[in-house]
Amino acid sequence: MKDLFSPGNLITVAGGVLTVVGAVAYGTGNANLSLPTIFYGIPILLGGLALKSSELPPAKRVVPANTFKAQREAAAPELGKLLADVTRWRYGQKAHLESSLEALKLWDDDTPPQLLEIEELNGADGYGLRLRFELGAVSLERWTEKQERLGRFFAKGLHADLQDLGGDRIDLRLLQAAAPAAGQHGGQ
């Protein structure tokens, strides 16, 4: 149902309705109605079809939006921005997080990794996100090589955990980095 209300669909339907109304008005001799509806309807219809051709639907959200609202607001703001970015319609991109994956050198132009779903987590480590990717042409070894950098890339104080799901899929968990225990200092 959510797919029916994409901006591309809404604009295409609006343009189609205006074009049909204009054509019917022209056929019945109602020039006052046919002229504006055809002249506005056809460009709107073409614009909607152009949007549909470059549309990238939002990643599937596993947990309802209001479930972890308080934890999301208390967590690093970058996690909330990441969540908002991948759960909206995108246009003109091959995959969600395209520029981030390119910067991390986890990108392939022909078969890029695809974000399938995102889940908010709230456990002993605090608030975090789980992103499920289909690897595409990027190998699991490349993801593993970048694992340490993945957490720091998205927000300061995050730790990335990769889990191989087999079948060309992985889970990337972005969690709060464990704080040093009381009395412990780095290098001692």
Results as ranks from 00 to 15, higher is better:
171 D>H: 09
33 L>E: 07
71 Q>S: 12
92 G>M: 15
92 G>E: 14
184 Q>L: 06
17 V>M: 12
167 G>L: 05
144 T>M: 14
31 A>M: 13
176 Q>L: 12
119 E>T: 12
147 Q>K: 13
61 R>W: 05
8 G>Y: 06
50 A>H: 09
41 G>P: 06
79 L>N: 01
70 A>M: 14
168 D>M: 11
121 L>S: 13
63 V>D: 14
131 L>H: 05
78 E>R: 13
168 D>N: 14
83 L>W: 02
22 G>C: 09
43 P>K: 08
76 A>R: 13
169 R>F: 01
125 D>H: 10
118 I>Q: 00
182 A>D: 14
61 R>C: 07
115 L>Q: 05
92 G>C: 01
125 D>N: 10
64 P>C: 07
105 K>F: 11
14 A>F: 08
83 L>Y: 05
184 Q>A: 13
73 E>H: 07
6 S>I: 07
141 E>Y: 09
11 I>H: 01
13 V>D: 00
135 L>R: 08
132 R>G: 04
122 N>G: 12
56 L>Q: 06
71 Q>P: 02
79 L>R: 01
154 F>E: 00
62 V>F: 00
103 A>L: 10
51 L>P: 01
64 P>G: 03
26 Y>I: 06
35 L>R: 14
84 A>W: 09
21 V>Y: 09
131 L>Y: 06
55 E>S: 13
6 S>W: 08
4 L>Y: 11
21 V>F: 13
138 V>C: 03
65 A>E: 15
8 G>R: 02
95 A>Y: 04
